[in-house]
Design a protein around this nucleic acid. Structure first.
Lengths: 256, 256
DNA sequence: GTGATTCCGG
DNA sequence: CCGGAATCAC
């Protein structure tokens, strides 16, 4: 089983890249963040005949999640608690017995801001979500744009970046507390000390060419599934295309 | 000698189309309207190595003229009278002894508006410009987006369109008064009764496919040059391309 | 830098 | 419908 995550930074602007990637890579499940589109405007037609079913929940301009599955869905839900505002940030689907929770965690703006406080609360509520909904024995994957680079290895310049909303002790702690539900960081399971990024800022012209990136997209799994994970890797190609997202695809493979 | 006119509706958005067209058609002179760009932002690099020199005068967002010449310029000036506001609407160049006056005539908004009054005055001032600057014996060409469809033949639905700011007795009269300086409508010289258009509105999905257009771009010449004009025709291809302008190219050829 | 939005203009 | 601008967010 192959499961992937991608922050598209607009599914409309990236429809061709996503469709091409699905056809070239045939994942079982692809989770997308930042679709930036209302459900009524989702570019359904761009994916017709691709062999994928799509579940999506979005809003105007910001946020928005989507899941592409080659095997349909046993379950689909959106949101944390029953807060409608959080629906475009969390999808929870079950495909072939595997639960996949796709999150677009609030970025947090600045450490001294209400938005950062909201981000912290979001991690907390997410832990509660996992506690209430899943048991460690369940087949569970948590992935998405988590807006946290968990260690010094996960940013190109840890000294300079320390204190950023995605790279500071508070987020590390918040992330750790969710992870401690029982999640294993799959990329680090396979590559414990390589600098591997998933995001390169548009604003620096040379960020991608000089590999000055961040690993803020992630795939984690319960112990049970982590043991069956055969690889976890980044596909950098889509970041090098014509009108790329600032993120690229992260993929995990499982022997189930 | 081959001279062409094209309302690009943004030279930045149309740089590839214009460059491709120059390379495929090798006009001696191409006059462009609605470049929609300040001089400092003109996409000079898009035309490097094309073999054309460019003279341009623009402003933010609206208007803007440019002239591409394969033979450099003997003279270049912009504007009517010494009104800076009119510079992005009129270029006057001399290439190989031929004076080419390129105008983007104000559209006029609505007949009952100050903008329409401005349009009428513009035609009047343009006639004065020709009177003051040129003699009937001069080699003179007047072309551009003239925002007037001179006769019933020049719009797809003269009945419905009568009263439009580009198709009403007032503009016909204003246009006629400039034309009477001594200009010959070159397309009508060669094709006196064909429906041939240069503009198809974006806003009607089927305007181009159903050829519901307007002939509001024009090339006129003094008697002397008109006699030497061997053909005048529209190239519809660029209007059928991927991200087209709403206008297309009009070309006149001369045996000089 | 890139995208979405709203607004203006054709 | 399709440009540009200005604004906002990341």
């Amino acid at each position: 089983m192959k499961i992937a995550t991608f922050n598209a930074n607009s599914i409309r602007a990236r429809a061709d890249i996503v469709r091409g990637w699905l056809e070239a890579n045939s994942p079982d499940v692809l989770c997308v963040q930042e679709t930036k589109v209302q459900d009524s405007e989702f570019p359904v037609s761009a994916f017709e005949g691709s062999g994928y079913e799509i579940a999506y929940r979005g809003q105007k301009s910001y946020n928005g999640v989507a899941v592409f599955s080659r095997h349909g869905f046993e379950n689909v839900s959106f949101g944390l608690d029953s807060e409608p505002a959080d629906e475009p940030r969390l999808s929870d689907v079950k495909v072939k017995g595997v639960n996949v929770v796709n999150t677009y965690i609030p970025q947090g703006y600045m450490v001294e801001s209400d938005k950062f406080e909201y981000k912290m609360q979001w991690f907390k509520r997410l832990r509660t979500y996992f506690d209430n909904k899943y048991k460690p024995a369940d087949k569970l994957i948590w992935l998405g744009d988590l807006n946290v680079a968990p260690t010094d290895l996960d940013v190109h310049d840890p000294k300079r970046l320390l204190g950023h909303v995605c790279f500071c002790p508070e987020v590390w702690d918040a992330f750790e507390k969710v992870k401690s539900w029982g999640f294993v960081d799959l990329l680090r399971k396979h590559y414990p000390d390589e600098r591997i990024y998933t995001f390169w800022d548009y604003r620096s012209k040379t960020a991608f060419t000089n590999d000055r990136g961040w690993r803020i997209d992630n795939i984690l799994a319960c112990e049970k599934l982590a043991k069956k994970c055969t690889d976890c890797y980044v596909d950098r190609e889509p970041r090098a295309m014509q009108r790329p997202s600032d993120h690229t695809f992260l993929i995990a493979e499982f022997d189930l």
